[in-house]
Amino acid sequence: MITTRRAFSAAMLATAVTVALSTVSVTSATSAAAAEKEKCFGVAMAGKNDCAAGAGTTCAGTSKVDYQGNSWKYVEKGTCTSMMLPGDRMGSMTALKRDIPA
């Protein structure tokens, strides 16, 4: 039951659905799923691409020693220095530093 005045009618919505669905391109669910599966089960897993699941747990220790203190300095350029923002908001990355007393 529609009581409020709308910018469009039921007929318009139905037409929109018809128009939308006449041009919709949905690959058959099974073939799309199979293609994605092949990609995920194949090469893509190694990279940080479509199938990287994020962090996992570990039951191992690490031999990589991370110095335990809390201070660090910005010494390396990330790619964010190349992202343009209007005005004087660009380039402050080079001044980044953090020194928290441990």
Binding site: D66, N70, S71, W72, K73, Y74, V75, E76, K77, G78, T79, C80, M83, L96, R98, I100
Partner: peptide
């Protein structure tokens, strides 16, 4: 975006 060194420091804190 942050670069490895800054990211690692921030991630640690």
């Amino acid at each position: 975006l942050l670069g490895e060194t800054y990211f690692t420091g921030l991630a640690r804190t």
